[in-house]
Structure formats: C-alpha cells, structure tokens
C-alpha cells in the first residue's frame, strides 16, 4: 500500500531530529513534560510504525506527522488501524517496529501510559468516563494539573487562579450553568464535553479524540466542532471521526487510513476526490 503524500518529503526536519536524539532516549532518560522540544514545529511524529496482532497487521509502516497547533482529522473504514494508532501514541500498545516521537526528544515507545499522559498527551475515549457522583466542577477540579500527591490533597484549597481556570474551562465546554450538578445527571453530549474539559484541565499539548461526536445530537455536534476549532492553535488536536459533516466543519487537514497505513492526506475536498479513497469507501 503506497502513500499519496510521503511525510518524509513534506517534513524532512521531522525525520532528522529524532535520529539525532535517539542516543539520550535509549539511555533511558525520559525528558520531562516541561522540556517538550517543539523547535521544529512538529509535535507528533510516527515513523514506520507496525503493529500486528496474531499475524494481522493492524498498522503497517504507518507514517504521520502532526504540526504544533494543528487540527487533524483521521478517517478510514473500520479496521483501518485508527484506534491502534491512538493506542501506540498513548503507550497502551507497543509497536513491533518503528518510532513514535512527541516533539523532538520524547520517545513514546519507551514510556508508560501515565508518563505519556503526564508529558502532555491527553486522550478522550469513545465512552465518556467521568466521575458520575462528583459535580461537573469537581470533575474538572480533580483533573486539574497540580500536585496530586496525598499530602497536598489533604490540605488543598483552590486558589483564585485555579478557580478561574475551572470556571473558564466550564464556560469553554458550555457547562457553566451545570457546574454544581452531579455529572451522572448530565446529557450524553454534556458528558462528552465534560470529559474534554477534564482533558483540557491537564493542559495537554496534544489532544487525541476518538469519535468525540458519536451519539451526539446535530446541535451538540455543531457546538463540538466550534469548540475544537477554538482549541486549535493553543493545542494540537488529532480527531478520529466517521461523521463527514463534522470533519467538514472542523476544516483541517484530513488523513485517510487504510489497512494500517496512510492512503491519502490533504484537505477534505482533495481526499474525497481521490480515486483510491473512493474505491476504499465504496468499492467494498
């Protein structure tokens, strides 16, 4: 399976830097969250990633590069490897071969899930997993990036700044009127937003969102698109989605995955007119 756009050709600097830095990373030095190196404007770089489960190649020499502040959509038929790709980035699945770098220096294939989350990659799963007995406000408070050791939690009180941050995220996810409601009583769409809000509280540099509008009403889908567009720039977003009108509303670059590798890349109109994409979607 060939690729339409070779990421190496598009972003040559993205390839060279990890090569240079492999030394320190392989010595077991994990660069801390504050030391994310974005000097080459690439926040995520996947190089020739392959993953197979019992002989089935879920990912087959996948190459992908995400720019800082970019809003990227990943589409593809079922079994194209979208979720496996997310698993590799978040450390849930180890690739059989290939490299995955966060910024220039952070080697994701050598880190555990919590380390990756702490380094600044936030992931939203398909099913919202919020704390149903806590209020929306408390959900965000718990997720806030702060000292999370026992002793600090025993005596923790929100500072004005922290309070304002929770409030502003509540506003961003349109839950400022629901702050004191138990999260379990929110609508499905509101729960999804709350989960996104919890991700935002952790101040991630890169957000991975797996089918964020599944099960949402049209109105909620529209509002979610507005939210994502407003987040791009400050954060980098990777959105996996089936809903084409949502992808269109996001308006960013689209990557089409098929059988574990990149089939096409470009804006939505370009990939939709690509003959191979049409074959993959319609010809089966």
């Amino acid at each position: 399976m060939s690729t339409v756009l070779d990421p190496q050709a598009v972003r040559p600097e993205g390839l060279n830097a990890p090569e240079n830095w492999e030394g320190p990373a392989s010595d077991g030095h994990v660069v801390k969250a504050g030391e994310l190196d974005l000097s080459h404007k690439v926040i995520l770089y996947l190089d020739d990633i392959s993953v197979s489960f019992d002989g089935f190649k879920a990912l087959n020499k996948l190459n992908l590069a995400i720019d800082v502040g970019e809003l990227r959509c990943i589409i593809g038929p079922n079994g194209a490897g979208k979720t496996t790709m997310m698993d590799v980035i978040t450390g849930k699945t180890r690739p059989d071969s290939g490299k995955a770098f966060f910024g220039q220096t952070i080697d994701l294939t050598r880190m555990t899930e919590p380390e990756i989350a702490h380094a600044g990659i936030g992931r939203k799963f398909q099913k919202p997993t919020i704390f149903e007995h806590h209020t929306a406000f408390e959900n965000l408070e718990l997720a806030m990036k702060m000292d999370k050791r026992v002793w600090k939690s025993l005596f923790a009180a929100l500072s004005d700044d922290e309070y304002d941050r929770v409030s502003s995220v509540l506003k961003q996810i349109r839950l400022d009127h629901e702050a004191e409601r138990p999260a379990g009583l929110l609508s499905h769409g509101q729960k999804q937003w709350l989960e996104i809000g919890m991700l935002l509280m952790q101040e991630p540099r890169l957000l991975l969102l797996d089918e964020p509008v599944a099960g949402m009403t049209d109105d909620e889908t529209e509002r979610t698109a507005e939210l994502f567009v407003s987040l791009a720039g400050k954060h980098s977003l990777v959105v996996v989605e089936h809903d084409m009108s949502f992808v269109e509303a996001l308006g960013g670059m689209v990557t089409v995955l098929h059988e574990g590798s990149v089939l096409a890349e470009g804006d939505l109109a370009t990939v939709q007119n690509d003959q191979r994409v049409i074959e993959v979607y319609l010809g089966r």
């Binding site: 989350a117 997993t129 704390f131 806590h134 408070e141 718990l142 999370k148 919890m198």
Partner: peptide, 18 residues
C-alpha cells in the same frame, strides 16, 4: 473527592495522574 473517585472509577483516576 479523590478517594470517592477512586471508589467509582479507579483506572480513570490513574489516568488523570493520581
């Protein structure tokens, strides 16, 4: 609140860094 969150969804609590 963290304790109650652990009671309700422990893996999620780990995921947000506790």
């Amino acid at each position: 609140r963290v304790l109650a969150a652990i009671r309700d969804a422990e893996s999620r609590v780990m995921f947000i860094g506790y």
